[in-house]
Write a protein that binds this DNA or RNA. Structure first.
Length: 642
RNA sequence: GCCCCCAUCGUCUAGAGGCCUAGGACGCCACCCUUUCAAGGUGGAGAUCAGGGGUUCGAAUCCCCUUGGGGGUACCA
């Protein structure tokens, strides 16, 4: 495969690669089949698919679209070329003690001009080297490496999905490497089930990682593994020991009670809560005495006093006084397990992450991380803090107020293209008036510098609109494939409710595609649109059988006459055009409004007032069933008379 | 409380001193199309650019203050 085909590489480029497909399939075990991408604005035929020629191949593609690095070596072709991304722009990060304390308050120090100066950008924005000092490591050229580090304490969250997407887009745009790391050090809340949901959801979205943990029985991929933090414990322990040895950290024996008392006292004194440093300078004897009391120490990192400054790609220059950070930071629990602020830095350093792109909720924590990077002697990455996704009341998005799990959107019939497109637009814009973008198109256009800095309310209405747009753009056979599970589920529900259900007929479904595809805001709306086709019997509401301008008697006559006319058309000529003219003629002769007659017929055969266009519906239903339903409806109305 | 970030139609956003009488999209309303429902088309309502001071011939845009919102401040991530 051509090395230069980067724009294409994360589409089905693994096609044909030999790989243990069945194993992947089993792991994925997706009730809803993963989808392929379509190209908007072009014809509905999926070129990949045309080349493939059958639907089975598409499943192979689904398997192939596992994250890069999870399959055969074939995907190595997609690895960024060494050196292609050029130099990594590094800002000089002042040593806290070297920075003169400015009189202006840090809040006012944000240099807007600095932000402006980032534009315009070259095609490879981060190759700009306006840094007055080279990176600490001395190497001037560095391949961009960024990561998403979800914590399996819940299913993949839309906020995390967006962060993952932005990291992915940034890495792909610039030819960098995108790493997936599982941050599972919160053993109490982490669950395998959630990790699985996260991986599946990322995969479903098409966000593929270059390096990450082993999945589906396939080994971890990438030179910096393992990629699960609980498997990296020795590294954290060694690093903590090193910091201890260098006196950059110390053992703290304070009990929860002592700390709570400190906090209470601080509150009373109207001080900011902070660690008082009781254990910061313990002698060996003091330590031994605490140990004999059976106290298990935590490890605290010494937070240096001073101002830590960094240049956030999205927010510009930020300065934070470390005295506001709450004092020395616990990096290892008393049970020996490491804490987030520690592991994130140890791993970012070890994995040579050059760009940390994460939610704004971490902005205030960044100085702690920077101090830790320095203590470790590691290069500081460039930071980009994304605006938060908000509830309608503008608080940080929460599952109480907004549906947050990506998998829940998927189950409701949102399609991957729409969710990706929507999430990309939540906080970023291309600067043009286009707004329908494929993942590949996003890769072409994405710039971190164009990310908005204010929080964005999650607007489900807009997502639904975008979903409809994307559903309409699907190739018909792709649409059928994607909607089928939703139809099956809807019919299962009807069967469970006691209705006699007919197995969906492929031909019927395909014939109706053009009619239903543009009527679905979500795939899960399929049931209410065409369930009548797959029920042996419908039960129309008698009131709805009588159009507004008609009385019951007219309705009875109308249904009978319609039955007669349709029977006259006959099974052989049972086509939309024939039905159309015959029924219009009937309305004309009787002096009825065609619409009234059609309404009565529609309700009679579908039991719904809203349905796909009537004549196509009748054809899909078939001659016999149409007549039968007209008869039943007529009888129903007549029965009411008696 | 303290620290940090943010601020343009209800919502997502465009906007980098004059192209702004502030553009687009969702949603809403009306009309057209139409057998229903959608989709689509056309048009409309909707933002004194949070408020106040500066700087400037000129400010949505630069600076300051105020207000409002959000986030952080754990042996959570």
């Amino acid at each position: 495969m051509a090395d230069g085909g980067r724009a294409d590489h994360h589409r089905g480029a693994c096609l044909g690669a030999a790989r243990p497909r069945h194993r992947l399939r089993r792991w994925l075990d997706l009730r809803l089949r993963p989808c392929r991408r379509v190209v908007p604005g072009r014809d509905r035929a999926d070129p990949d698919r045309a080349a493939r020629g059958d639907t089975r191949a598409s499943r192979a593609v689904a398997a192939c679209r596992l994250p890069r690095g999870m399959g055969s070596g074939r995907c190595d072709a997609h690895r960024p070329r060494a050196g292609s991304s050029g130099q990594h722009r590094r800002q000089s990060v002042a040593d806290p003690h070297a920075v003169p304390r400015r009189r202006c308050r840090p809040a006012r120090c944000r240099l807007r001009r600095g932000r402006r100066a980032r534009r315009p950008r070259s095609p490879h924005p981060t190759t700009v080297d306006d840094s007055p000092t080279p990176p600490a490591g001395g190497s001037s050229a560095m391949t961009v490496r960024c990561r998403i580090a979800p914590s399996p304490t819940g299913p993949l969250h839309i906020g995390n999905a967006r962060t993952a997407l932005y990291n992915y887009l940034y890495a792909r745009r610039i030819g960098g490497t995108f790493v997936l790391r599982i941050e599972d050090t919160d053993a109490a809340r982490s669950a395998l089930e959630h990790e699985r949901d996260i991986l599946e959801s990322l995969h479903w979205l098409g966000i593929e990682w270059d390096e990450g943990p082993e999945v589906a029985g396939l080994p971890a991929r990438g030179p910096f593994g393992p990629y699960r933090q609980m498997e990296r414990l020795p590294l954290y322990r060694e690093t903590a020991e090193r910091l201890l040895r260098e006196d950059k950290a110390y053992h703290c024996y304070c009990t929860q009670e002592e700390l709570a008392a400190d906090r209470a006292a601080q509150e009373l004194a109207r001080e900011a809560p902070h660690y008082v440093g009781r254990c910061a300078r313990l002698t060996a004897e003091e330590r031994a005495s605490k140990e004999t009391q059976g106290r298990r120490p935590v490890v605290r990192f010494r937070v240096a006093e001073g101002i830590v400054a960094f240049d956030d790609v999205i927010r510009g220059h930020v300065e934070i006084d470390t005295t506001a950070l709450g004092g020395d930071l616990v990096i290892v629990r008393s049970d020996g397990t490491p804490l987030y602020h520690f592991t994130v830095v140890v791993d970012d350093a070890a994995m040579q992450i050059t760009d940390v792109i994460r939610g704004e909720d971490h902005l205030s924590n960044t100085p702690k991380h920077i101090l830790l990077f320095r203590a470790l002697g590691a290069d500081e990455p460039r930071f980009s803090h994304l605006p938060l996704i908000l509830n309608p009341d503008r608080t940080k998005v929460s599952k109480r107020k907004v549906q947050t799990a990506v998998s829940a959107y998927r189950e409701q019939g949102f399609i991957q293209e729409a969710l990706v497109n929507y999430l990309a637009l939540l906080g970023w814009s291309s600067g043009t008036e286009e707004e329908i973008f494929t993942l590949d198109e996003l890769v072409e256009r994405f710039e971190l510098e164009r990310v908005h800095s204010g929080g964005a309310v999650f607007d489900r209405e807009r997502l639904e609109w975008l979903n409809g747009q994307w559903i309409r753009r699907l190739a018909p056979e792709d649409f059928v494939e994607r909607v089928r599970p939703f139809l099956a589920r809807a019919l299962e529900a009807r069967a469970a409710a006691g209705d006699a259900v007919i197995e969906p007929d492929e031909g019927q479904l395909e014939a109706l595609v053009p009619l239903i595809q543009e009527r679905l805001p979500r795939l899960d709306a399929i049931g209410e649109l065409i369930d009548f086709l797959f029920l042996t019997e419908v039960r129309p509401d008698p009131a709805q059988l009588v159009p507004k301008r008609w009385d019951r008697e007219t309705a009875v006559t109308g249904l009978r006459e319609a039955r007669r006319v349709i029977a006259e058309v006959g099974a052989v000529s049972f086509e939309a055009d024939e039905l159309d003219s015959a029924l219009r003629r009937l309305a004309d002769v009787r002096g009825w409004k065609a619409g009234d007659l059609f309404t009565a017929i529609r309700v009679a055969v579908t039991a719904r007032t809203a349905a796909p266009p009537l004549f196509d519906t009748l054809v899909a239903l078939g001659y016999e069933r149409t007549l039968e339903r007209l008869d039943r409806a007529g009888e129903l109305l007549e029965g009411l008379e008696a």
